[in-house]
Design a protein around this nucleic acid. Structure first.
Lengths: 346, 346
DNA sequence: AATCTGAGCTTTACCGGTTAACTGAGGACT
DNA sequence: AGTCCTCAGTTAACCGGTAAAGCTCAGATT
C-alpha cells in the first residue's frame, strides 16, 4: 500500500498483462482486435494497478475529449447574485454527469477574450464543444467562431445566433403575454425595466414590449435598460415612480430587479399590488418567498440548461441539429399583480 | 482569409520563423537560449499565424496546466437553489480569471466517484490543483487523496481536512454568538435547523450550539438535521412549531431554509418576529428582500471563494501554506429577530 | 499443395508540445 | 595560438496515449 511516486501508464499495464500498448488501447476503447480472454486480463491488470487512460494524452492523439466549455462574459460578482446562472449550470451539469463529462468554466472581461478562449480551447482539443450564451445583436462571436468547426450550441433566438444551432425561449410572445395580462387588469401605463441594451434578448423583449403596448393602445411606455443587478433595478424603479406619469405596472427582466423594485416601492410609500403591480422574469425561488409573492414569467431554467446540454451532445455526435425552442415562459400570477388602481376587478 | 482546415502547430511557426521547434518553445516560455531579436520574430510569426501553444500538448509533456478542479457531490438541483455555491464559485473565478485559468467543474453522486475523478484528473495532469469542499467527519477523501501529491486546498475546519491546507470560518464561535444574541433577547427555548448530520461543519455547529445552550442555562434545545433545501427547512420548522414546548427562536444553517421557515411560521399563524425569531446563515440577497428582512449570520461568500483560490495558487506554487481562517460570520440583525414574547425589551 | 481469409496481436508513426544533451561560433583569458 | 566559456540555437528523446499498417498462424477454399 505504499504511495509509489511513479505514475502508472499504459505501458505498465501492457507489460503486466503481457501484451503491447496497442492491445491495451484496443481493449479499453472496446474496439475489435483483442479476444475476450485478453480483454478481461487487461481489465483485471488495469484495475489492479489502478490505471485509467489519461484523458490529456488521449485527447492529444485522438481528438476525443469529455469536457465541454462555457465562457461567461459578465462581472464575477453578478454571477453569484443572479439565480439564473447557477440554475442553468446545474441543468447542464445534470446531463454532463450522466455521461461522465465535465464543464470547463471561464470568466472573461470582454467578447474578444471570449473568442480567444474558445479558439484556444478548440485548437488544442481541450473541449469537445461549447455553449455560447448572452448573444448580442450582430454578435462578433458569430463571424469569429463560425467555420472553426467547433461544435457549439447557442442560447438565444435564432435570429442572433448565426449558423449555430440555437436553443431559445420565445421571449417576444412571453413579453406580449405579460403586457396583455397587465392590460387586462386595467393598467394603461406599463413600464419595463430591461437588461443591457446591447444584449440580443433585451432588444427582442424591448421591441415586443413596444409593439404590444402600441397594439393594445396603451399609453406610451417607458423602458429602462440596466445591468441586471439589484442596485440598477432599484434605481430604475425609483426613476419610473418619480416621473409625473408614473406607471401602474412594471415588468422586469429578471427577478432580482423585481424584488429590489418591490423594496423601492415600499420605501416610497406605494403598496404592492394595490398602487403598483410588479411582474418578474425567470421565477427563481426568490419570487415565492417575498411578501407579497412575486408574479412572474416563469420557466424551468434548470431544464433549459439540461436541454442545451442535450442538444450540444447531438451536435458533437454529428447530428445536423436545427436547434429548438424550449417552452415559452408562462405567466404565473402571484401577489404582486392586481387590477390597476381605480379599476373594477374584471 | 480562407478557413484552411489545417491546424497550425509549433512546427509551422518554427518553419515560418526559420528556427527549430525547440527555439519556439523556449521563446514562448520566456526561457533563456534565444536572442531578443529571434524571440520577437517568433512572436510576430505566431501572431500572424494565430498560434498559441496547445495546453493539452503542453500538459502532457511538461505537467503544466492552468486548470483547477472542483468536484461537487450534491444533487444538481440543489446547486441551482442554494445561493452559496454560485457565489462561492464566482469568488473562485474572480481569482482564476486574473491568471487566465479555468475551472473544471464536475458533479458526482458520491464520494467514491469524487475520489476517482480527482485521481484521474491528477494522474493525467488535467488539473494543476483542486478545491475540496463539504467535508464529512472522517472524510474518506483524506486518506484516499493524501500522498497523491495533488495540490489541494480544503474548505472546512482543520480538524476535518487532514493534511490539506484548510480555509475555514469559525463556525463554532459564530453559532455561539448567535445563541448568545438570542438569549440576550430573552429567548429560553432556542432550536436549530441544521444541514446533513454527516457534514463536518454541521457537526461542529451542532456541538457548539448544544454547548452554548448548556453554558447559558437555556432549556434543552432541539436540533433537526436536514438536506439544506427549502422543503426540508419548511418541514423541520413545522415539526418544531408543532411541539408542545415550541421554541421562540430558530437558527438555520442557510438562508433558504430560514426563508422557507418564515413562510411556514406565517402559514401557521405565528408572527415573525413577535411570536418567533428566525436567524439565517450565509446571508445572501435573500435575507434582505423578505418581509420582515432576515437577521443572519453573514459573511462574504464571494470573498471566501476568492481566498480559497488564492491559497490554492500558493500551494501550487509550492508554498508551505498552513491554510487560514477567513472572517467569522458575524451577526447582522434585521427584522426577523426580536425580544422573546413576554419579555421587556432590554 | 497453394492460396486466401480473418482474427488477434505487434510495430511503428504520429499527436504537439517540452527538455536534456549536444553543437558551433565568437570572445576572453592565459 | 590554444584553451575555456558563454550564448544561441539544434537535435532527439520523451510525455501517454491512438491508429494505421504489418505480421502470424489456424482454418477454409480451390
Amino acid at each position: 500500500m505504499s504511495a509509489s511516486t511513479e505514475r502508472v501508464t499504459i505501458k505498465d499495464v501492457a507489460a503486466r498483462a503481457g501484451v503491447s500498448k496497442g492491445a491495451v488501447s484496443l481493449a479499453f476503447n472496446h474496439k475489435p482486435g483483442v479476444s475476450e480472454a485478453t480483454r478481461e486480463r487487461i481489465f483485471a491488470v488495469a484495475r489492479e494497478l489502478g490505471w485509467a487512460p489519461s484523458s490529456t494524452a488521449r485527447s492529444l492523439s485522438s481528438q476525443r475529449v469529455d469536457i465541454i466549455g462555457l465562457v461567461l462574459c459578465r462581472p464575477a460578482r453578478l454571477l453569484g447574485l443572479e439565480p439564473f446562472y447557477m440554475d442553468f449550470v446545474s441543468g447542464i451539469e445534470s446531463i454532463l454527469a450522466e455521461r461522465s463529462c465535465s464543464l470547463l468554466l471561464r470568466l472573461v472581461r470582454d467578447l474578444d477574450e471570449e473568442i480567444a478562449v474558445h479558439r484556444e480551447w478548440w485548437r488544442g482539443r481541450m473541449i469537445a464543444g461549447a455553449i455560447l450564451v448572452d448573444f448580442r445583436e450582430d454578435d462578433p462571436r458569430v463571424p469569429a467562431l463560425r467555420g472553426l468547426g467547433l461544435p457549439a450550441v447557442a442560447v438565444g433566438h435564432p435570429s442572433l445566433t448565426g449558423p449555430f444551432p440555437a436553443v431559445w425561449t420565445d421571449d417576444a410572445s412571453a413579453v406580449a403575454e405579460a403586457v396583455r395580462y397587465l392590460a387586462a387588469l386595467g393598467h394603461r401605463r406599463v413600464a419595463r425595466v430591461g437588461g443591457p441594451a446591447d444584449l440580443g434578448h433585451s432588444a427582442i423583449r424591448a421591441r415586443a414590449f413596444a409593439d404590444t403596448v402600441r397594439e393594445l393602445g396603451l399609453k406610451e411606455a417607458r423602458q429602462i435598460a440596466t445591468g441586471f443587478d439589484e442596485k440598477e433595478g432599484a434605481r430604475a424603479t425609483r426613476t419610473l415612480l418619480l416621473a409625473a406619469d408614473r406607471p401602474t405596472a412594471i415588468v422586469y427582466d429578471n427577478d432580482i430587479m423585481a424584488v429590489a423594485g418591490a423594496g423601492v416601492a415600499a420605501e416610497m410609500g406605494f403598496t404592492v399590488p394595490d398602487d403598483l403591480s410588479l411582474l418578474a422574469w425567470d421565477d427563481s425561488q426568490l419570487c415565492r418567498i417575498t411578501h407579497p409573492t412575486m408574479s412572474a414569467m416563469s420557466h424551468d431554467v434548470h431544464h433549459f440548461g439540461a436541454e442545451v446540454a442535450r442538444v450540444l451532445f447531438e451536435v458533437i455526435g454529428g447530428a445536423h441539429t436545427a436547434g429548438h425552442q424550449v417552452p415559452t415562459p408562462s405567466l404565473t400570477p402571484r401577489g404582486s399583480t392586481a387590477p390597476a388602481p381605480g379599476t373594477q376587478s374584471p
